[in-house]
Design a protein around this nucleic acid. Structure first.
Lengths: 111, 111
DNA sequence: CTTCTTTGCTACTGTATTAGTAGCATCTGT
DNA sequence: ACAGATGCTACTAATACAGTAGCAAAGAAG
């Protein structure tokens, strides 16, 4: 099976497996955060920028391009939105929220 | 709720929520891949480097430090290993494997 | 005990990615 | 027509990462 990212730099290391391509894509700064913020519905460019803590427009635009060519995000009349694939991804990532709370508790006891 | 990363640079943007800290940590290059490769059991530094497609030792070491202070990875007699927390994280991330296959199929039809 | 590997890193240099700011073209409301 | 708001692009500076070399320590081999 061979699936690096389509039309994307694919910083090496994907070695053909889809899961590696996911790590490559989501391992870029702001990727997951952007998708996460889109869960609530479409967002305009500037609203998304705000939601992501003021990420610089250049980076935001680059990430959005990548996410669009990866068919996780698309543009609609009311701005950027998750595609069905993007929503599925966010659903599989949803348990992370619960885990992160446990993690935070464990860390606070640790210091 | 306030939980940035403990003793880590926390490249801004975490804004206090644990899930954001997760995105910050896992959004760094190789973080997820390293954890992923440790699923199969402990690995020596150099074995891990190999498994991660020859990532440079400097970066690998940095990531491992971060993952250790985040209590996701620990050193054992036989090298680096996931902590219980790290294993839980990998379990919550496991559905990604299935999703990534669907994604790859969707992408291949798309071109 | 000496020598040869292997292992786990650190140091250093060059390249790529991201941050940060400014500003322009287009659209929207008044 | 004018004043904002919006979606970007362009540019520079800072940071992160890649790539290579090599060293100290631990073990194996003779």
């Amino acid at each position: 099976m061979t699936t690096p990212l389509p039309g994307q730099p694919s910083r090496g290391s994907t070695s053909g497996q889809p899961i590696m391509a996911v790590f490559d894509l989501l391992g870029r700064r702001w990727s997951m955060r952007i998708l996460w913020e889109l869960r609530g519905g479409p967002n305009s460019f500037r609203a998304l920028q705000e939601a992501c803590g003021g990420v610089s427009p250049s980076v935001l635009n680059t990430r959005l391009k990548e996410l669009r060519t990866s068919v996780l995000v698309e543009t609609q009349d009311d701005g950027y939105a998750l595609t069905p694939l993007g929503e599925q991804l966010m659903q599989t990532l949803d348990p992370l929220r619960g885990w992160s709370k446990d993690w935070a508790i464990a860390l606070s006891k640790n210091k």
